[in-house]
């Protein structure tokens, strides 16, 4: 699919194609302005793609980054609104989520903290019983401990209900073990699309004597040369390099940064 941003003659997202297996968790990663929100908007059906399609089968719930809300509504009103808007509303599920995070039902939306607003919008989205839940930077207003707690609870929802989760984040370090799949966007293009574990196992950093050529076969993602040594990050599939090269796996963060630097 491709999308042109409104009022701009530049591609916001271009030639992006991927699948979302049911029950999977996908992290959409990229710098600000890389097209993450545009992509989620297309998946949510809020932006028509210029070409191709971004159709999702089943019920979709989408929580945008800025979490819009009627200020004069109390928490209970927001839930009542959710019930009114959704034929398939599951009030118990929404209530349970709010109880879990201790959000009082009497509070007014304008008095909610950033964290409480996050919990309320998630409760609203989950109450709609989505097959696919799309979250744009869902954890951005939470402290590190709350981020973990919310992600654990979301993953439990995924495990219990077979829900598919797609979320954007720029905290790559928190993606490991959480996302089955990683989509890396840069300037509206898809740099990486793969299983998180596979990406980690395919990329190896080789360090050895100064060399103008990679010691193994495979696409070189990054080459660095010092005075006496060179290092190559290669998508080698884990191939071994001969002496005196040493090899080590890289973290997801190193991997993403290397790909972004290569694309820049």
């Amino acid at each position: 699919m491709s999308v042109v941003a409104a009022g701009v003659s530049k591609w916001a997202v271009r030639d992006v194609s991927f699948e979302l297996p049911p029950g999977s968790v996908t992290a959409v990663v990229g710098a600000n302005g890389s097209g993450k929100s545009t992509l989620l908007n297309v998946l949510a059906g809020h932006l028509p793609p210029e070409s191709g399609h971004g159709a999702i089968a089943g019920r979709v719930a989408y929580v945008p980054q800025h979490k819009p809300m009627y200020k004069s509504f109390r928490v209970a009103d927001v839930l009542a609104f959710g019930k009114h808007m959704n034929k398939t509303w599951d009030g118990e599920r929404a209530d349970e989520w709010l109880k879990r995070f201790k959000v009082p039902r009497k509070l007014q939306a304008e008095d909610l903290s950033g964290g409480q607003r996050t919990h309320l919008t998630l409760a609203l989205a989950l109450g709609a019983r989505p097959d696919v839940l799309l979250l744009d930077e869902p954890l951005s207003e939470l402290d590190p401990l709350a981020r973990r707690k919310v992600m654990s609870e979301l993953l439990t929802e995924v495990a219990d209900r077979g829900m598919t989760l797609v979320y954007s984040t720029h905290v790559v370090a928190e993606v490991g073990g959480v996302a089955d799949r990683l989509l890396l966007l840069s300037a509206g293009r898809l740099l990486l699309d793969g299983e998180t574990d596979d990406l980690l196992e395919e990329h190896v950093l080789y360090t050895g004597p100064h060399a103008s050529k990679s010691p193994v076969k495979g696409p070189v993602v990054q080459a660095k040369h010092g005075v006496s040594h060179s290092s190559y990050l290669v998508r080698s599939g884990g191939a071994a390099a001969g002496e005196p090269w040493t090899a080590r796996f890289v973290t997801l963060e190193e991997l993403v940064v290397a790909h972004l630097e290569r694309a820049a």
């Binding site: 973990r148 992600m151 654990s152 439990t156 073990g177 089955d180 574990d197």
Partner: peptide
Amino acid sequence: TVRDVVATSGVNANTVLK
């Protein structure tokens, strides 16, 4: 159980199954 690990460690169910 897979669900327990998901709830307590914050990892994806597929990760535990794998």
